[in-house]
Structure formats: C-alpha cells, structure tokens
C-alpha cells in the first residue's frame, strides 16, 4: 500500500532525521521525497510504501502525528487513494 507523508511547520534541525528514522524502524520504504524551506517554513512531501510494515495505516498515521507533536511539526500520513481520487479523472 502506498501513502503520502506531509510534514510542515517552522524549520529546525533534525526534522528529516526524526521522520525517516521512524519510517525506517517501521519497515516503510521512501520512494520519493521533496523538501523545501520557504523563509523559516519547512515543507516536505514523501511518497512511501507501507507493504513492508507490520502496522496498519491508521496506527502509523497516529504515531507520526504524535512524533510531529514532539518536535512542533505537523506530520500527516494518508493513503494515496485520496489524492488519486481528487486529482485524476
């Protein structure tokens, strides 16, 4: 199953480290990553493959949201189907 991780908030050190460490520890493969800093605002979009993870998507999403809270960032993990549905005819 493919999903999209989006991270946003005030820029600081270690954001990618926190996110990618969590993904690695949970067997989630990063297939694409795009990241930018505008002013002091950090934004990152990752496409990930959850098929190697033993946890379900809702659990992973909740855990990442919690991780985000710890570093003052907003982190979402969503099934890619929502984006596919809304933006493809």
């Amino acid at each position: 199953m493919k999903a999209v991780v989006t991270v946003s908030g005030a820029d600081r050190t270690g954001i990618i480290a926190v996110v990618s460490t969590y993904l690695y520890e949970n067997g989630i493969n990063i297939e694409d990553i795009s990241q930018t800093v505008m002013g002091d605002h950090f934004a990152m979009i990752m496409r990930v493959d959850l098929s190697g993870s033993g946890k379900d998507i809702a659990t992973l999403a909740a855990a990442l949201e919690h991780k985000g809270g710890e570093i003052g960032m907003s982190i979402r993990l969503q099934h890619e189907a929502i984006f596919d549905a809304m933006h493809r005819v």
């Binding site: 934004a43 979009i45 929502i82 809304m86 933006h87």
Partner: peptide, 9 residues
C-alpha cells in the same frame, strides 16, 4: 498526482 495536488488537498 503532483506535489501541488497534495498540498491543495
């Protein structure tokens, strides 16, 4: 979908 689409959603 593009990154723009993700942000828009």
């Amino acid at each position: 979908f593009s990154n723009y689409d993700v942000i828009e959603t």
